[in-house]
Amino acid sequence: MNKKAGPMFYVFLTLFVFLVMFPFLWVLASSIKPVAELFGDRAFIPFTNNMTGENYESVFVNYPFLKYLWNSLVVSSITTVYAVLVASFAAYAIARLNFKGKTVILGLVLSVSMFPQIATISPIYIVLKNLGLTNSYLGLIIPYTTFTLPLSIWLLVTFFRKIPFDLEEAAKMDGASPMQTYWRVILPLAIPGIFTTAILVFISAWNEFLFALTINTDDEFKTVPVGIAMFEGQFTIPWGEVTAATVIVTVPLVIMVLLFQRRIVSGLTSGAVKE
């Protein structure tokens, strides 16, 4: 940590950041070119003299892209709220209470989070189809529990464990019931951890592809990742629209990541690092 960074280091760093960001920058440059300049000789020149917004316009006019965004937002938000709420009870119990079988339960949660989605898809698809829930929001929110709930429990347990135990003892001494202790003492202290968990759960739900691809096939209920993947026409790919849509999806993520990078990193690395 106390090593000094030299000028060579910054050269390397800039190069590294440029390489990581290059695909985005190129796509951003392509998205504002007129379609004709995406092909032929001009395809490899990043700058254009005829800057245009037609690709962006087309994404919203010729494709139900706004609908996709809305669907993704609804599904991911509801999934996040309900998964984090249900998980917070379980995580509190595992982190703070003393009862048999805790380790087994945590092990179970961890192994469920490792389940390949493809192994659960056929029964889930058939059940949802029989219940008439394919092509609905609920049809995605329900199966999203398979990965969001274990993820939330796993993260929240590590956050709850970091809260000092003395506070709880003090609350108990003052005669607070376990539920009161949870709501009044633990929860306010756990808010940052819960928020971090919510961000990570939201991103994982927003990015989900396999369930969204198989369960919601109707344009009315498609989410963004599937919607963009289906931009592909039968013979040609509308690169102009694809690049524009990619930029539209990436920009809010960039803002979110810039705002919350500290939290996201702490969430990603908690549980993975032994202290």
């Binding site: 940590m1 106390n2 090593k3 000094k4 960074a5 280091f9 910054y10 760093l13 950041v17 990581v20 960001m21 695909p23 985005f24 796509v27 991103i203 927003w206 990015n207 592809f209 963004v224 990742p225 599937v226 963009i228 993947a229 931009f231 694809v242 690049t243 849509a245 990619t246 999806v249 990436t250 993520l253 960039v254 979110m256 990541v257 810039l258 990078q261 500290r262 996201i264 990193v265």
Partner: peptide
Amino acid sequence: NKAFFGRGLVRATILIPWAIPTAVSAFM
């Protein structure tokens, strides 16, 4: 793993490829 100027920014850049939906980055 050292102290340097612009640490937060580098960390954020690193996170962007991870945060973007895989399907979208695959199309890109």
